[in-house]
Simulated scan of single mutants.
Amino acid sequence: MLVGDSEVMQELRSQVARVARTSFTVLIEGESGSGKELVAREIHTRSPRADGPFVALNCAALVESLLEAELFGIEERTATGVRGRRGKFEQAHGGTLFLDEVGDLSATAQAKLLRVLQDMAVERVGGHVTHVVDVRVVAATNRGLWTLVNSGGFRADLYYRLSGVDILVPPLRDHREDIPALIEHFLRRLDAGHVRVTPAAVDALLAYDWPGNVRQLGRVIERAIALSTTDVIDVRDLPAVIARRAMEGVHDVAGDQSLRAWTSRYVRQVLARCDGNKRRACEVLDISYHTLRAYLEFGRTSTSTGRPQQKGEDRPAGAGHGGPAAVARP
């Protein structure tokens, strides 16, 4: 389930819906924790193969000596104590095979994978019988395969075979406006619908950069539920690195503490998160362009002491627009 109604998430869902109808190989690129496997599962669920199996394999989690057996299977009595079994390609017959972190495959494994993708047939380790498979392959990486191709770390022919259709999953910092919806999603998934997250805590989560993306946000919500002594999650229940940044934003604010001043600071903070795109900021804040301009003008006409500048007053040389934007919701 792809959560969020931001522009980038709507575009992602649109891409998934279009790609799912086809049988093409798909390459999903994105940072760790951004939701690449969720995208792969969504493609499978919306495809004509939805009634078939979805089989996932993390290529980075297996040592070289085991990878071939995991992918292609192994025959009975190939070695002492080894039981025969089907590989992931055979297990995914009629469905979808998701190869996560495909950029971590060794040169040898890349060559064998390329051969299977060309022939859609596998030969188990220790065997001599070819097994034809009907599988849609969806691969994912967080390393940037084209960069690896240019550096000689990934085969160009395999890259072209995998990248028939490319999908880029955006990092969470590029769609922060989806964080409130993601919070609600995680609370429901954790059977904690009765738990409330304070506006201050939401603002702290909005202000964080999320290097671990959506996966990290989910772990933070789990931690907060576990450590909170009430049914209310506040800033103090968040990890120190998130809470400290939020509190620094509050304490660094000086001068005018009126509601309009706080709202002006919040509006400027949202505008900064939208990379200066005023139209997008208006959509996120659900305000008109005229209202946005009014709050921005209020911020510009405030002196460093925080009170509105009066006619005839001169701004002190070097006076700026105050400290870091506050993280309080108006």
Rank of each mutant, 00 (worst) to 15 (best):
V137G: 02
V133M: 01
A156R: 15
A121E: 15
G144Y: 05
R85K: 15
S106L: 12
F154I: 06
V149Q: 04
G87Q: 06
T108H: 13
A107Y: 06
L148P: 01
Y160I: 03
R83C: 08
A156E: 15
T147I: 09
M120N: 12
L113Y: 08
V169A: 01
W146Y: 12
D134I: 08
N142W: 00
V133Y: 03
R143I: 06
G152Y: 11
A121L: 05
R86C: 03
T141S: 15
V116M: 07
L105V: 09
L145Y: 04
Q91L: 10
L99A: 08
V102Q: 01
R161H: 10
A121H: 03
R115H: 10
L114D: 09
E101D: 14
D104G: 02
I167N: 09
D104I: 04
D157F: 05
T108E: 15
F98M: 01
G103N: 06
A92H: 03
L162K: 03
S151W: 01
R176Q: 15
V129Y: 10
A109P: 09
A140Y: 08
V137F: 02
A140T: 08
T108W: 07
G94E: 05
K112Q: 15
L158H: 09
T147P: 04
L113M: 13
F89G: 00
T96A: 02
R83A: 14
F154V: 03
V137C: 00
R173C: 11
E123F: 09
V102I: 14
R176L: 15
L117F: 06
Y160W: 14
L113Q: 10
T130K: 14
V138R: 00
A121Y: 00
V122N: 01
T147E: 15
I167R: 08
F89W: 02
H175S: 10
G95Y: 06
T130F: 13
F154G: 02
T147L: 12
H128V: 13
D104E: 14
L99Q: 08
V138Q: 00
P170E: 05
K88G: 00
G126S: 10
A107G: 06
R86F: 03
V138N: 00
G152L: 08
D134Y: 07
V129H: 10
F154W: 01
V137Y: 01
V149W: 02
A139P: 03
Q110P: 04
G95T: 06
T96N: 06
G127D: 12
V133Q: 00
H128R: 14
Q110V: 01
L145T: 02
R176H: 12
D119F: 13
A140G: 13
W146K: 14
V169T: 08
R173V: 06
G153E: 13
F154K: 03
V129F: 09
L99Y: 06
L97K: 07
N150E: 15
V102T: 04
L148T: 03
L145A: 02
D119T: 15
G126I: 12
H131T: 13
V102L: 07
T130S: 14
T141E: 03
V135K: 01
S151L: 09
L168D: 12
D100Y: 03
R115D: 08
H93F: 04
R115F: 04
